[in-house]
C-alpha cells in the first residue's frame, strides 16, 4: 500500500533528499480553505474563507487572536493550529509578565518554527498539519509571517495559503506595489479581492463564510495600537459589499452580459 519506502516516519530522507512525511503535511495545508494576509505601512490584515462541513453545521474558525498585537490565520488541521495558538498565547503572556512588552513578532514566529522543526527530526513524531499566517504589530511596525509544517518561517509583504491560493497570490503579486501606501479599509479591500479570486464560479463571499482580522497602528509613526480584532458576520458586510459592487461594475463596464453563471460551475473546493 505504501507509495514508497521512505515515508514511514519524518526522520528518514529519501535517496532524493526528501522527507515525505513533511511534504505530506504540506499537502494538508493545501486541503485547508484559503487564507490571505497582507501588510501596509500601518496595518496587517488577514482574510479567510470559512467552511462548514455540512449545511447543518457551524463554520470552522479560521482566525485566532493570540494577543492584543498578534493574530493568526490557519489553513490545515484546526486542532493542530489550536495547539500552536495556545502555545503562542502563553508565550505572549509570559513575555508581558517578564519584560512588560509586546512579544516581538520575529521572536514569536521563530519559537513556533523551532517547535515545528523538532517534529521533523524525532522518531515517532508527526509534523504539524497546518500552515499559518501570523500578522501583528510590534516596535518595528506591522509584520506578516508565513509558517509551514516543515518549520519554515519567513516574513512576507503579502501571502496566501490553502486551497486554490495560487489565484490569490497572483492577485497579490500583481497589486503588490499598491499595498504599502494603503489605508486600513483599502488594505482589507485588497485582501477580500484576493480572496474572491480563489472562489469557484458560483461561489460568493458571504457574511457567513468570510472572516477578516485587522491589526495596526492608529497613526503612522505613533505607537498607539489598534488591537487585533476578528470581524465576522454583520461586521464584514460593508467590506464584502464594496468588493461585490466593484466586481459588478467591472463586468458591466466590460460589456459582458454578467449572465454566463449558468450552473455548470465546477465544485472543486468546499
Amino acid at each position: 500500500m505504501f507509495r514508497n519506502n521512505y515515508d514511514n516516519d519524518s526522520v528518514t530522507f529519501s535517496p532524493q533528499g526528501r522527507i515525505f512525511q513533511v511534504e505530506y503535511a504540506a499537502e494538508a495545508v493545501k486541503q485547508g480553505s484559503v487564507v490571505v494576509g497582507l501588510t501596509s505601512k500601518t496595518h496587517a490584515v488577514l482574510c479567510a474563507i470559512k467552511r462548514n462541513a455540512e449545511e447543518l453545521s457551524s463554520y470552522q474558525k479560521k482566525l485566532f487572536a493570540v494577543d492584543e498585537h498578534v493574530g493568526l490565520a490557519i489553513a490545515g488541521l484546526t486542532s493542530d493550529a489550536r495547539v500552536l495558538s495556545n502555545f503562542m498565547k502563553q508565550q505572549c503572556l509570559s513575555e508581558r509578565l517578564t519584560y512588560d512588552r509586546a512579544m516581538p513578532l520575529e521572536l514569536l514566529v521563530s519559537l513556533i518554527g523551532d517547535k515545528a522543526q523538532l517534529n521533523t527530526q524525532h522518531y515517532g513524531r508527526r509534523p504539524y498539519g497546518v500552515g499559518l499566517l501570523v500578522a501583528g504589530v510590534d516596535e518595528t511596525g506591522p509584520h506578516l509571517f508565513e509558517f509551514q509544517p516543515s518549520g519554515l518561517t519567513q516574513e512576507m509583504l503579502a501571502c496566501a495559503i490553502g486551497a486554490r491560493s495560487q489565484m490569490a497570490r497572483t492577485y497579490l503579486e500583481k497589486n503588490l506595489d499598491q499595498f504599502a501606501a494603503c489605508g486600513r479599509d483599502e488594505l482589507i479591500h485588497h485582501g477580500l479581492r484576493a480572496l474572491k479570486e480563489t472562489l469557484v464560479q458560483d461561489r460568493e463571499l458571504t457574511l457567513e463564510n468570510t472572516s477578516v482580522g485587522v491589526v495596526g497602528l492608529k497613526e503612522l509613526g505613533k505607537k498607539a495600537l489598534e488591537p487585533f480584532k476578528v470581524h465576522d458576520g454583520p461586521d464584514v458586510k460593508d467590506w464584502i459589499n464594496s468588493v461585490a459592487d466593484e466586481a459588478e461594475a467591472e463586468t458591466s463596464a466590460e460589456g459582458g452580459e454578467g449572465e454566463g453563471e449558468g450552473g455548470e460551475g465546477m465544485q472543486v473546493d468546499e
Partner: peptide, 20 residues
Amino acid sequence: YQSEAGHTLNARNLHKYLSN
C-alpha cells in the same frame, strides 16, 4: 543575537526583568 530587526529591551523592560 535573537533579533535581526533590532528589538532591544528598553529601560522599562529591563526594570521589569530585574524586579522579577
